[in-house]
């Protein structure tokens, strides 16, 4: 039995989501190899070699894989996947983009967003925005799976010494190309990996007012998130959205400010260890999941919190 984990990386380094995915792979109990597909991706491959508990790192270094275009990378994974019983990727936008193509090429189902491994063929996953947890059993010989990274504690990034194997296969479907990207640059921790997250909602009233969250975020080493309402209203960009169809976070401390607590938002943060809600509406549903609720005007509470931290 063997499992192939698809690395999430930027060619130079490995994204921590890969470590969570390896942890899910360990629960399957098979030998684990990691695929690093990219261009000039030696740095990411070296990092993958150091990951604890990995047998081999397959490195496919070619211009066709530089931007992780799903049309190309899925052909590579489907070819390499012939030798594996399980193929796992993190349920990031990259994993979600590529893996269903892999599953279709292999004529098997994909099991999306698993939160636990019950046995080699049985998994739990949230459905209906996390209002229900489904236990599903796969009858496919080969399992294609995406992993909800917050549900698995990452394995150690150091301590392994996996063998490096170069993969020569080049798959360029020639039907898509990368044009450009606008990636948010921030000194703050990444939203899905931050120990503390402070998020603003419609109650923030505009994008400028998100500055009120920044001072607190700086003091707590927090990432800043937002509800769908705040993103839809154009206050802040999409990469800040926490929720069913945005990012799933589970920090030690989640502070929801001016967020009413729609089901779709709760789906993205209710596994946080401690939840604080600040809202002037004492009947807001967010208080039903909050460990500590403060009924207050956020424009008064936020500066006070910042000054007292």
């Amino acid at each position: 039995m063997s499992t192939l984990v698809i690395a999430e990386h930027d060619n130079a380094s490995l994204n921590p989501a890969t470590l969570n995915t390896v942890a899910a792979a360990q629960a399957l109990g098979a030998d684990i190899d990691i695929l690093v597909a990219g261009a000039g991706c030696g740095g990411a491959a070296s990092a993958a070699q150091a990951v604890a508990g990995v047998r081999k790192v397959l490195c496919a270094d070619n211009a066709a894989y530089e931007h992780q275009l799903a049309e190309n990378v899925s052909l590579l994974i489907a070819e390499l996947g012939a030798d594996y019983d399980n193929i796992l990727a993190p349920a990031t936008t990259s994993g979600k983009n590529t893996m269903p193509r892999v599953a279709a090429l292999l004529d098997v189902a994909q099991i999306s967003d698993i939160i636990s491994v019950e046995s080699a063929d049985t998994f739990k996953r949230p459905i209906y925005a996390g209002n229900v947890i489904a236990t599903v059993q796969s009858s496919d010989a080969k399992k294609v799976i995406t992993v909800r990274t917050t549900a698995f504690d990452g394995v150690a990034a150091e301590g392994g010494s996996a063998e490096l194997v170069a993969v020569d296969a080049v798959h360029d479907a020639g039907i898509s190309s990368f044009v450009g990207q606008e990636i948010a640059v921030s000194d703050r921790p990444e939203l899905t990996a931050a120990p503390v997250v402070i998020s603003g909602g419609r109650g923030m009233q505009n994008g400028d007012n998100f500055k009120l969250l920044e001072g607190i975020a700086d003091k707590l080493g927090a990432a800043i998130g937002a509800s769908r309402a705040a993103v839809d209203a154009g206050f802040v960009p999409n990469d800040m959205q926490v929720g069913q169809t945005g990012k799933i976070v589970a920090p030690e401390l989640y502070i929801a400010v001016g967020i009413s607590g729609a089901i779709q938002h709760l789906a993205g943060m209710k596994d946080s260890k401690v939840i604080v809600a600040i809202n002037k509406d004492e009947d807001a549903p967010i208080f039903q999941v909050a460990d500590y609720g403060l009924v207050a005007d956020l424009f008064e509470a936020l500066p006070e919190i910042e000054s007292k931290l």
Binding site: N131, T135, V136, S138, L294
Partner: peptide, 22 residues
């Protein structure tokens, strides 16, 4: 390809407390 064995509610989070001040 898949059999639904079971559905269950997620672990409930109970509401905590309201604090009076910052």
């Amino acid at each position: 390809h898949l059999t639904l064995l079971k559905v269950e509610p997620p672990p409930e989070r109970s509401a905590g407390i309201k604090v009076e001040s910052v």
